[in-house]
Design a protein around this nucleic acid. Structure first.
Lengths: 109, 109
DNA sequence: ACAACTGTACGACAAGGATCGAACACCATG
DNA sequence: CATGGTGTTCGATCCTTGTCGTACAGTTGT
């Protein structure tokens, strides 16, 4: 029988339709988080674990940023062994905030 | 000879093309400032003085928000007597950040 | 069992920014 | 000129949040 691991059970994902605009903007207003999103936008889904991003912060801080992005409905995460894989929720997020993601990451800072 | 008033001389406007994305997002990430922008978007240019906005903050704070919006290239201001009139710089801002303004203010919070 | 690796949780710290009161400058009007 | 109205500037305060070290949990491989 296939059972969810205890770790995966802690992963709660929100419906982007329920995310306040304030949360979405707060999530997008950080350069490290935008860097993560741009990275995800240029790679296939589920191919990037949290540790594979080249970020200018320590892992505790990176973990915090991933949590913010998840709670803003911008990314989905899934555990694969010891690693946590990521996916950009482009379609879902675009449905709730048309044009916002593109306007924010399809462009240099 | 027509001379700029001392007060108007303090009014510096930036080129939206020179505004960093970070500044634009920081400006848009505040609910009071979004409220100002939505108000401007639904009124004719130069018809709203700073004091005519119904804001949940004191005037010193409101003044700060107008300054942030101006420095982010989102609004233009012009003095008319004792009052400072405002205009939403929609076209200019859209040229630099396509879709960002609409995605942010064409919607409830 | 043990060690190495990945990621989170928690507490602490510092920086930034939103807020306000008070003082000030400018304008208009009596 | 005096008064009232509009808006800015300056400190001070408070709160949020980005940052990190450390400790911990779960996984993988030896």
């Amino acid at each position: 029988m296939v059972v969810e691991s205890a770790r995966a059970r802690t992963l709660s994902h929100v419906d982007p339709a329920e995310v306040p605009l304030q949360s979405a903007l707060d999530a997008l207003a950080d350069p490290v988080r935008r860097s993560i999103l741009r990275d995800l936008a240029t790679h296939d889904d589920w191919t990037r674990a949290c540790g594979t991003f080249d970020l200018p912060v320590k892992k505790a801080t990176a973990s915090h940023h991933f949590a913010v992005l998840r709670s803003a409905g911008l990314i989905e995460q899934r555990d694969e062994g010891a690693r946590r894989l990521n996916r950009l929720r482009r379609e879902e997020f675009d449905r709730s905030f048309p044009g916002l993601l593109s306007a924010t990451i399809d462009r240099a800072d």
